[in-house]
Design a protein around this nucleic acid. Sequence first.
DNA 1: GTGCTATGCAGGTACTTCGT
DNA 2: ACGAAGTACCTGCATAGCAC
Length: 330
Amino acid sequence: MYGQVRGMKTDRLIRLIRIITLVQSKPGIMAKELAERCETTERTIYRDMEILSFANIPITNLGHGKGYQFVGNFALYPMDLTEEELMAFAVLPSLLEQVDLVPPDLYSAYEKVMAAARKEKLLRQELLDSVTNVIQMGTPAYKDVKTNFLSTIIQAILSQQTIEARYHTQSRNVTTVRAIDPYYLIPREHRFYLIGYCHQKKAIRTFRLSRFLEVNILDQTFEKDDFNLKAYLKDTWSIERGEKRIAFKVKFSPRVARYVKEEEMFVKPKLTDLEDGSLLFEVTLNHDREFLQWLMGYGAEAEILEPQSYRRKMKELLQRWLGVYDRDKV
DNA sequence: GTGCTATGCAGGTACTTCGT
DNA sequence: ACGAAGTACCTGCATAGCAC
């Protein structure tokens, strides 16, 4: 639009870069001064500002008399971003949206990343690391050094490239090297999980991100075929999947009913308000452990009505628990 | 000349400060 | 409290300069 193919004057280009530098070094600088420093008029500065905003350079005027400055602490030249990096940003929210529940903090995190990317010359890896640092919610207690493969995995998902990963399987306490086609990243309980096709097991598997010890992107692309995430996670309380179909019926006391309704869930339970103010909660799940754990957080405010076998199971569990403290008795 | 971009002048608008 | 003056931001328009 403003480009000039032939006879291209470098004046404007130089001036645009100058403006960026000036605003960067002196936030709040006003149009008049910019004009003087660039040896031009204010009119030209205003036009240049327009061009900069077309180029998505977030310089803004923060009100009358406050001059110009970058939005947030942004001080990056977006021209340095590769197409791929921009894509990574652009698709991140939709990536998570595919599992229905976008963590409410994602958007603010997104903005923080932009603000955090302050350095004048931000290397590609630094940028992606910023994403990683903002999004990752915790590190395993035993790990001192933060090894983080979030950015690598996002890249692989975007470019549909197979990764080779060294992964620690906690339940068997073994470390294996395997090739994985990364499909989706899903957030659960302050953690990220990767769902993908494991070439060794020849099946879809779920991997906890913090258990990756090494991740390398292979020079090999994949197709997702007809994998359906929603179907894959159907009736799954959180992340652990099972083969069962357990129809739970739980009654929550009036005291906690409204808190239960407010909880963010990955399944859609049937909720019925009872006359006494308590809440009947019905859900069918393919695995019990995570659900029971959640339920126990409500203590005596939650009562399993069905199935009977789980009433007994819960009772046994509580008796064993009680037993731990009974040892104190003399 | 025509068609285009880049520029500067002049003037408008919105807000702040000053003087009464 | 209120209007005048001042300041900063923004825009319309004429024109210079260049390619064709």
